[in-house]
């Protein structure tokens, strides 16, 4: 997919040149890579992605329509970033229906939330839940499912939080990801308040697209100009049959740069059950790879230059019949 920096002119992209056959490797990889891959993959990214823009990058992940995959995206991109050695704080701003903690498998460790912090029942650092797998990933929930968020201060509370995170001792986090609730209600308004950039998650269907366009409009009105989209639950088989809009159709309707294209993948629901984000799966799955690549582009403020449009039948060997 898009690593898929698909380029007519390879000279603009140094990593496409034949030189990096043996690129300087900043983090030496102990396991030798398959020589075949070295030759065949056009891209040699044997490096940590280059962080661009001032930190913390406050990114709100929003969609308008519900259930299109905001929380899935937050969890997976968040953990991908953490694995790339960036410090990440994921804020579950889905006040009414929070579930980021479930996706991350941290549901038993959330004792305090922002509501308690505001009330003075605990300090902010006590409300941050550190992931044991990647210690540079922290989760912060806005409120307990049954308590109400006091909105008297508007979105200011989240701005304070971001400022407090900036000023904390162990240093400012590189990324603050905000999982926005569906709709354009009070929760949405609160969630977008501190953000500088936005990731718009949508699915390639007309209902999600209309909401996505609306939300993009609202974000732009609020001064958030850096908006990229992730098209989720793409099925290349349906696109080929013209039963589903292609990613390029979606782009034509919204006019937004593409951060990633996530295929429909049954592993998503399995990873939800496990509380173990997809990107940690081994072997990697299609959706996991797509999320990782999206995270990479987010770091570099890059966008996709080419998209996968349809599946070509792969020639099968004679013995594949037996091998399954």
């Amino acid at each position: 997919m898009s690593s898929l920096r698909f380029l007519p002119n390879p000279t603009h992209f140094p990593h496409l040149n034949p030189i990096p056959k043996h690129p300087p490797n900043p983090n030496p990889n102990p396991k030798p890579k398959h020589p075949f891959t070295q030759i065949h993959s056009a891209l040699q990214y044997n490096r940590k992605p280059q962080l661009t823009g001032p930190t913390p990058r406050v990114v709100v992940i929003t969609s308008g329509k519900g259930g299109v995959g905001k929380t899935t995206t937050t969890a997976n991109i968040g953990l991908s970033l953490a694995r790339l050695n960036f410090s990440v704080v994921a804020i579950d701003a889905d006040v009414g229906l929070r579930n980021l903690d479930l996706l991350l498998g941290l549901e038993n460790r959330v004792n305090y939330t922002v509501v308690e912090v505001l009330n003075g029942d605990c300090r902010l650092d006590q409300a941050l839940v550190r992931d044991k797998r990647w210690s540079n990933f922290e989760l912060l929930c806005i409120s307990k499912p049954r308590s109400k968020l006091p909105l008297g201060f508007g979105g200011k509370a989240l701005v304070w939080l971001v400022d407090a995170l900036k000023a904390r001792q162990e240093g400012c986090p590189d990324f603050i990801l905000i999982d926005c609730p569906a709709g354009i209600d009070a929760g949405f308004i609160t969630a977008i308040t501190p953000a500088n950039e936005a990731v718009l998650v949508t699915t390639p269907d007309i209902t999600a697209l209309r909401d996505a366009d609306r939300v993009t409009g609202l974000l732009e009105c609020d001064g958030i100009r850096d908006i990229k989209m992730i098209v989720n639950r793409v099925r290349t088989d349906l696109i080929r049959g013209e039963d589903m809009m292609s990613v390029l159709d979606v782009q034509e309707m919204l006019g937004l740069a593409l951060l990633g294209v996530i295929p429909e993948d049954s592993e998503v629901i399995r990873s939800t059950n496990r509380g173990f984000p997809l990107v940690l799966n081994k072997p990697p799955t299609l959706a996991g790879l797509a999320f990782e690549q999206a995270a990479w582009r987010l770091v570099e403020q890059d966008s996709m230059k080419a998209v996968m449009v349809e599946e070509e039948p792969k020639k099968k060997g004679f013995f594949s019949f037996f091998g399954g």
Partner: peptide, 15 residues
């Protein structure tokens, strides 16, 4: 958990 550090240059991705 699995670790693969480069999502673009990966045995699973061949361009």
């Amino acid at each position: 958990p699995g670790m693969y550090d480069d999502p673009f240059n990966n045995p699973q991705v061949k361009i």
